[in-house]
């Protein structure tokens, strides 16, 4: 992207040189003031000196000559400084251009040195242990784990009831299917009823814990009952 303009500039400069060579000292006056060189100023002063001399030795001409010399000196100084500045800027531009190209060549790792400002972090996408998941995702997974764990405890408790004979075994096979359900079934026997209530309560308590953040203290009263 940056190459073409440079070339144009160079071509322009070359053209200018050609022009001057062709036009000779007279041509300097026809140039754009922004393209004048000190050489051009000397050419101009040569041309003007020659013409002043042709005007003869009128004292008014001599007076004017001093002023013209002064103006030419000022012009020389301006052109001099202008070309120096241009040269400096050109060098700076070239250096910066080289620097940019160097950085580009070094590629992505160079990004690590980029200053991101406070509270920002750079992640190396090649790092297999890089941070990937959001806080919300972790919360969700924890919730799921906790609810699965509470279901496991619930099932274990129920199993213990079967083993210890609190739930008669003959009731078992027919209702086994329902045990897959998350919410414990409503049982028939008095003892079962009692126990189901307790298990259910445990389950719902865990569920409450999970939604805690949203629920706020809304249900703290329920907790006291638990």
């Amino acid at each position: 992207m940056e190459e073409p303009p440079l070339r144009e500039e160079q071509e322009e400069e070359e053209e200018d040189d050609d022009e001057r060579d062709e036009a000779g000292p007279e041509g300097a006056l026809g140039k754009s003031p922004f393209q004048l060189t000190t050489e051009d100023v000397y050419d101009i002063s040569y041309v003007m000196g020659r013409e002043l001399m042709a005007l003869g030795s009128d004292p008014r001409v001599t007076q004017l000559q001093f002023k013209i010399v002064r103006v030419l000196e000022m012009l020389e100084a301006l052109v001099n400084e202008g070309s120096l500045t241009v040269e400096e800027l050109r060098m700076e531009r070239d250096n910066l251009r080289k620097e940019v190209e160097g950085l580009r060549r070094e590629g992505p790792p160079a990004n690590g040195e980029v200053n991101l400002g406070p509270d920002k972090m750079v992640i190396d996408l090649a790092d297999p242990n890089r941070p990937r998941f959001t806080l919300q995702e972790l919360r969700d997974v924890l919730q799921e784990r906790n609810s699965l764990k509470s279901q496991l405890l619930l099932v274990q408790e129920e199993l213990q009831c079967y083993k210890s004979g609190l739930i008669p075994a003959r009731e078992g096979p027919g209702e086994r299917r329902e045990e897959d359900a998350v919410v414990p079934r409503v049982s028939k026997g008095g003892s079962n009823k009692e126990e189901k209530t307790t298990i259910k309560k445990l389950g719902s308590f865990i569920t409450w814990q999970e939604g805690d953040e949203q629920a706020g203290k809304r249900r703290s009263g329920d907790f006291a009952d638990a």
Partner: peptide, 8 residues
């Protein structure tokens, strides 16, 4: 009164 849950 029935026993409350499985024995601890």
């Amino acid at each position: 009164l029935p026993p409350l849950g499985p024995p601890v």
